[in-house]
């Protein structure tokens, strides 16, 4: 498996925010100001339409993270900000992987896909699109295995996370 290009510790933060214009800019600027790199960010409507969810994977130093989370919580439109790093929460992600592949490579690729329960969602004469679900590490590993075959495009949904039981996400 290929080493990830992450040198700083990775964190997952979920935000419960007012569904108002400008929230995303304010959140993104809070990260940028402390030189935190956002790896992925998923915004989706919450149960009540007036709120949204943001799930953010970011990397940076732990001390700075504590400060960033407090600064996020301070934004008027952020109802709550929770750092789930190190928690046993349910995490998942979806990736779409496009490969250009000759016929003689297909069997091997399909074997890897099967092992990872990936689905072939587009079958072309000289290309394939695979769709895979799972934790980010699993997807990283999957992509690592496929890389030698020549990945031409990669789209990942970004990390999704939900706290277990009665805990709040």
């Amino acid at each position: 498996m290929e080493a990830l290009p992450i040198t700083q510790p990775a964190h997952t933060i979920s935000l419960f925010v007012n569904n108002k214009p400008g929230v995303l800019s304010r959140v993104a600027m809070t990260f940028a100001r402390r030189a935190f790199n956002i790896e992925s960010l998923v915004v989706s409507p919450a149960v009540e339409g007036r709120y949204s969810r943001m799930t953010i994977a970011a990397s940076g130093s732990v001390e700075t993270l504590e400060q960033v989370v407090k600064q996020l919580a301070k934004l008027v439109d952020v109802v709550h900000a929770i750092d789930h790093t190190g928690e046993d929460a349910h995490e998942t992600e979806i990736a779409l992987v496009k490969l250009e592949c000759a016929l003689d490579q297909r069997t091997q690729i399909l074997q890897i896909a099967e092992h990872y329960k990936a689905k072939v969602v587009d079958y072309g004469t000289d290309s394939l699109i695979l769709q895979v679900y799972g934790g980010s590490e699993k997807i990283d590993a999957f992509i690592g295995l496929l890389r030698p075959f020549g990945i031409t495009e990669l789209v990942r949904s970004g990390k999704l996370l939900m706290a277990r039981g009665r805990q709040i996400t």
């Binding site: 214009p21 400008g22 800019s25 304010r26 600027m29 100001r33 008027v76 439109d77």
Partner: peptide, 10 residues
């Protein structure tokens, strides 16, 4: 003005 306000409205 995002970085220089407590909050803002359009």
């Amino acid at each position: 003005t995002y970085p220089v306000v407590k909050h803002s409205y359009l």
